[in-house]
Simulated scan of single mutants.
Amino acid sequence: MSADQVFHSRSEGIPSEGVKDQYADGKAARTWNKFIGDSNERTQNYKDFLIGLLRKNGCKKILDTACGTGIDSMMLVNEGFKVVSVDASDKMLKHALKARWERRKDSKYDEWIIEEANWETLPRDIEAFLPNTQFDAVICLGNSFAHLLDEYGDQRMQKMCLRNFAKCLKPGGLLFIDHRNYDAIIDSGATPGHSIYYNCKYPVDIKTSVLVVGGKAQLVALDYCINDDANSEKSEFRLCYFPHKLDKFTAMLDEAFDNRAKHEIYADFKPMSAVPVPSFYIHVLEKA
């Protein structure tokens, strides 16, 4: 189901056939880049969690499958990892390419690869510019995977994309993937305005809409309002997501790895028992 069958988008760049690129008009991409800041504004908990597990498992070559403006990728490049960054949105990639150009005098950025790619054809897309390559780790973080909506009602596209992530991994490689706590969002009708990923310096208000069809939540729309009081600016945009419930998403991930992967789930980068109502669930799977 495409979001514009239900909601009238505020973004003229969203294509009529759905929301494959919700940043297509460039407006949300520009605002998002400002909203999340730079790699120095990533929370220490996030940095310690991701980089700690990557180093613990000897990961060196990383595929960022939802690089957006490139902030997470730059954080990894700065830490000495070899990073390949892909995204389906050329408007988001424009910011990543600009960031790489601005750092062209830093030798660490010479090997940072940035390309456009689609999750639905990911192994083939990567083969086109990096033949016979598999990765030590694949990351899809920041609630990115939930951008992919359930057009057919059986999550067939989500399942295919998760299998593609698994195909890109070496044996023993790690997949990092997350989603918001949609169980809590559906129950409460509210979304936390703060993020566990970045220290945003602007006040953020998020209005939440939940579409329920046949007794099941089918889509969540988040209307972001970001206030820059210093410049008397206010930015508004809407993003739509498929509301993954924890149990079903866990089972879908296990199936993508033929039920052979070691699968750990974290709540806001902490053990599940430590956070009663987390904002995010982070899944880490180790390919058999």
Rank of each mutant, 00 (worst) to 15 (best):
residue 6 V to R: 07
residue 16 S to W: 14
residue 26 G to N: 01
residue 29 A to R: 03
residue 29 A to V: 02
residue 31 T to D: 09
residue 36 I to G: 04
residue 37 G to I: 08
residue 56 K to H: 11
residue 57 N to E: 13
residue 65 T to M: 11
residue 71 I to H: 12
residue 73 S to V: 05
residue 73 S to L: 02
residue 78 N to P: 01
residue 78 N to I: 02
residue 78 N to E: 15
residue 92 M to D: 08
residue 99 A to P: 09
residue 104 R to D: 11
residue 106 D to F: 04
residue 106 D to A: 11
residue 107 S to C: 02
residue 107 S to V: 10
residue 110 D to I: 13
residue 111 E to H: 15
residue 114 I to W: 04
residue 119 W to K: 08
residue 122 L to V: 13
residue 126 I to T: 11
residue 126 I to L: 14
residue 127 E to M: 02
residue 131 P to T: 13
residue 135 F to Q: 14
residue 141 L to I: 10
residue 142 G to H: 06
residue 144 S to N: 07
residue 150 D to N: 15
residue 151 E to F: 09
residue 159 K to L: 00
residue 160 M to W: 14
residue 163 R to S: 08
residue 163 R to E: 15
residue 163 R to L: 03
residue 167 K to G: 05
residue 167 K to T: 15
residue 168 C to D: 06
residue 170 K to T: 13
residue 173 G to D: 10
residue 180 R to Q: 12
residue 181 N to S: 04
residue 181 N to G: 05
residue 182 Y to G: 13
residue 184 A to V: 05
residue 185 I to E: 05
residue 186 I to A: 03
residue 188 S to F: 00
residue 192 P to F: 01
residue 201 K to M: 01
residue 206 I to F: 03
residue 207 K to F: 06
residue 208 T to K: 03
residue 208 T to N: 02
residue 211 L to Y: 15
residue 211 L to H: 15
residue 218 Q to C: 10
residue 219 L to W: 02
residue 219 L to N: 03
residue 222 L to S: 05
residue 222 L to N: 10
residue 223 D to K: 14
residue 223 D to I: 00
residue 224 Y to V: 02
residue 225 C to G: 07
residue 227 N to Y: 09
residue 229 D to Y: 10
residue 230 A to S: 12
residue 233 E to Y: 03
residue 243 P to E: 03
residue 243 P to K: 07
residue 249 F to E: 12
residue 250 T to P: 01
residue 251 A to P: 06
residue 251 A to C: 09
residue 252 M to A: 15
residue 253 L to K: 09
residue 254 D to R: 14
residue 266 Y to W: 13
residue 268 D to P: 05
residue 268 D to K: 06
residue 272 M to Q: 08
residue 274 A to E: 09
residue 282 I to M: 08
residue 282 I to Y: 10
residue 284 V to W: 01
